[in-house]
Structure formats: structure tokens, C-alpha cells
Design a protein around this nucleic acid. Structure first.
Lengths: 236, 236
DNA sequence: CGACTGACCGGACCGTCGGTCCGCTTCTGT
DNA sequence: ACAGAAGCGGACCGACGGTCCGGTCAGTCG
């Protein structure tokens, strides 16, 4: 989890978003990586590498702890020791790539990074996220098998959600940013992209365009005109 | 062994919905329901009833074949015989309710049913679907555990998707209805609604509003103004 | 009305999953 | 060199969805 130093959290901005606690202290990653024994470090690499290989060859469906252990030539217990559980493993696999994307929207050049108007940043982010997920589809799918139990949701998920929410609030403080952000992010969930691509009706660029349309339509400057009629028509 | 003859298509039902592609791939329900033995029919009811009870008491997570079998007082094999597999069971549970919703948008009064402008119908449908899913959240979640394998997706899912796609195409033939419909439907996936509700940040009405906003924003009459820059995005 | 037969039933059983446990091995600080 | 801690492996666990087959009994036919 906290790969780097937990303290140098790249605070998204001085933007006012007290809503979410930005420091999810998800316990320590089972072992303290600094004082890691050399053989343990070597095994970690073997495991991660083997997991990527399995993902490549067999897809998300083939990524079980047994197959990874076998592919890495280690015991199953070793994986659990290093990564805690299945989610810990997928998270570790994802980390490398998500950091890249995070840097893009936290400190990269506009329109994805700071500097552009929030609405353009949102559009850029939706596009970037779609392409990111497609590029790592199997990995995202493998990581997405979350039991509905944890109230908070995925680790990476939260970061993306927060970013969208922040931009939405920046664009128009009146809107229900939490809910809208949840819908936007769910619209491009990995499993959905997979289906759209598999059914042959959509291309990656087409999906990115559609996702951008979704975000742009939601955030029209003259948005009040959106609703042609009254709101309280449907009531239970 | 039995199963009547594979050729004797059981009349799909007296349910009036010829609008949709009249050959839903719902396959035949494992057994020909017309020539069902009386004890078998009784057991079917017992199973369905027990499944609903389990869902009520333990939620989607508790709905395993074992628990249902135990609750129904039948053997596990009986359930598989009647419903094929887990998805067959959840589908049967869902059927009763979905038919109601289907009637609403296929032949009910406007704005949900025919008669209203497609854009208003779309808004009404998004709202109705959100409320529908929330009303049957546990059941939807139980049915949503789909392995990503089937290319086509869920049974009910397809009907809703088709309806959205049709309305979108009606509103504006130029848009990529397939992709946009996929995003809209995925935005309000049961698991997402569950998260939004559980995190305490959203209310059912708030979600319905947001879902309506999403659809309305996507379908503004002067939609071309949406995009401040860019041009050649629509591949049609 | 009594015999028959196959649709039906139950639950033991299977393979796989994520996850735990504990005796043995290997590294490392002194 | 050594002792103890850190690491390791794979047998093991319970739960899952799904299969199988011997026994039973509902419905039918002579």
C-alpha cells in the first residue's frame, strides 16, 4: 500500500474538500518493507513478476493464489505473508501503473494536470481513465472482484473518485458532487468496458468520447436549462 | 433425459412485450413448465419462497445454493434441476418484478411509457430504474455476480440496455447509442447504488436525480455545443 | 385396480477458491 | 560461530457452485 513514504502524500490541492479523510491508514503492509530480508525481497519480485505473467497468459480469471504461487515457484503462504490477501496482491500490481496516472492529473501538464479549467480537466481525466483501464483491463478486472463488504471500497477507486468529486465541486458547488462522481466513475467500471469492447459495438476511442460526453453534459455552464420539466414528478 | 423435446418451444409466456426482440435467449427453463409434475411445481414454489426469505434475512451474501436448499427443505440437486444454476434461480426471482417494470415502460402511461417525447421517457426510465434497483437491491446484487464470461450479459440487463439504446437513437440518431447506453446503465449498477447508499452520502432520490441529470445532460437538444473544442469525434 | 416406469428427489461427492497454520529452513546481528 | 528471529512451504480448512446416481413415488395404462 503506502509504497513511498506515507507522509509525502501529494495533497491534491488547497481545494477545500474536508469530506474525505485523505490518509487512509490501511495498517502496515503485513511486513515492514524497509527491514525486509533480502530473500524476502527477492521473493516479492518473483511473485509480482509471476502474477503479471499469469495475468498475461490466462487473464483475470486465471489469477488465483494457487496459480500465482505455482508460477512463482513459492508456497502459497509466502504470498499471503507478503501481500496479506488477494486484494493486497492486485493492489501491489496496480500501484505501479496508478502512480503514473496519479502523477498525470496531480502534477502533470494541462489539461489533465492543474492549470486548465476544471471542466476541461474533468473531460481529460475521463478520457485518460478510460484509456488507462483498457490498457490494464485484465488487471483492473482481477482487482475489481471486491466483496461488497468493505464500506469504503477499493483503494485506487477512492483516489479517482475523490478527484472527480473535487473537480465537480470546483465546476459548480451546487451540484451533488458525491453522487454524481459515483455515477460517473461507475459508468466506466472495468467490467463494463470489457463488455462494451467484447460486444464489438464500441472502440476504445468511442468509449472515451462517450465518457467525456457524459461528464461534459453533466457540467454544462448553463446547466439549469437541463431540466425541461419539474423534478417532483415521480414519487413513490 | 427428459426435458420434453428440445424442439417443442414452450410458449414463452402470455407476457405482452413483443416490442423487444421476441426471442430472449432465456433458453428453456430446464424443464418444460407446462408438463410439470405437481410435486415438482410445489417444490419450485417452495424454493422460490425460501430464496426470498433467505434474501430478506441474510442479504445477497447469504444466498448460496446450500442455504436455499436447506431453507426450502429440499436437496441441492432439486434446485439445480429446476433452475439450471445459480443464475437461473436469481433470474426466476427477478422475473416477477422486472415484468412489472417492463410493462411500465413498454405499455404504461407516459412519461415512462409510450407517448411522451423520448427524452422525457429516458429521464423517467432512469429514475424508475434507480428506484427499482434500490427497492430490490439485495436481489439485484445476488443476480449481479456474473462471471464475465458470457458475451451477452445478463438477461434482464439486456432488456434495459436495449430500451435505453432505443430511446437514445430516437432522440438523436447521430450519437453512438450502444456505447452511451452502456455507460448510462453501468452508472447505476446495483453495486454502485449500494455503495452510494451505504457511504451515507446519497439518498435514493438524490441518486435518481443524478441519474436523470446524467441522461439529460447527454441528450441536450443543442448538444453540439457541449464540446468547447474538438470536432471529429462522432464516427457515425 | 394393480403394476409399471421414468420424472423426480436428496444429499454425498467433486474440484476450486481464498485463507490459515505450524514445523522446518535460512538469514543476519553480534 | 551461533542463536534466535524472520521467512518459508504446502497440508489443511470451510465454503462455494455444480454433478451424480440410487431410491422413490406420481401419473398412467392395461
Amino acid at each position: 500500500m503506502n509504497r513511498g513514504h506515507p507522509s509525502d502524500r501529494p495533497a491534491p490541492a488547497p481545494t477545500p474538500l474536508p469530506v474525505v479523510d485523505p490518509t487512509p491508514p490501511i495498517a502496515l503492509p503485513i511486513v515492514d518493507r524497509a527491514h525486509e530480508r533480502s530473500d524476502a525481497a527477492a521473493n516479492r519480485e518473483r511473485i509480482l513478476c509471476a502474477a503479471r505473467r499469469v495475468l498475461d497468459e490466462q487473464g483475470a480469471a486465471g489469477l488465483s493464489m494457487n496459480t500465482v504461487a505455482a508460477a512463482a515457484g513459492v508456497g502459497k503462504g509466502t504470498i499471503f505473508r507478503r501481500f496479506g490477501d488477494r486484494d493486497g496482491l492486485t493492489e501491489a500490481l496496480l500501484d505501479v501503473h496508478t502512480i503514473e496516472l496519479q502523477n498525470g492529473f496531480l502534477s502533470g501538464p494541462p489539461p489533465l494536470g492543474p492549470g486548465a479549467p476544471p471542466r476541461e480537466r474533468l473531460e481529460a481525466f475521463m478520457r485518460a481513465l478510460v484509456h488507462f483501464e483498457i490498457a490494464h483491463l485484465e488487471l483492473m478486472l482481477a482487482a475489481d472482484r471486491r466483496g461488497p463488504h468493505p464500506p469504503s471500497g477499493a483503494p485506487v477507486y477512492g483516489t479517482f473518485l475523490l478527484h472527480i468529486r473535487t473537480l465537480l465541486a470546483e465546476i459548480d458547488p451546487r451540484i451533488d458532487a458525491i453522487t454524481h462522481a459515483g455515477l460517473l466513475l461507475s459508468a466506466i467500471a472495468p467490467a463494463n468496458l470489457r463488455r462494451l469492447l467484447a460486444d464489438g459495438g464500441s472502440s476504445p476511442d468511442g468509449i472515451a468520447d462517450a465518457a467525456a460526453d457524459l461528464a461534459l453534459g453533466l457540467t454544462r455552464p448553463d446547466k439549469d436549462l437541463n431540466r425541461p420539466v419539474d423534478t417532483d414528478r415521480i414519487e413513490g
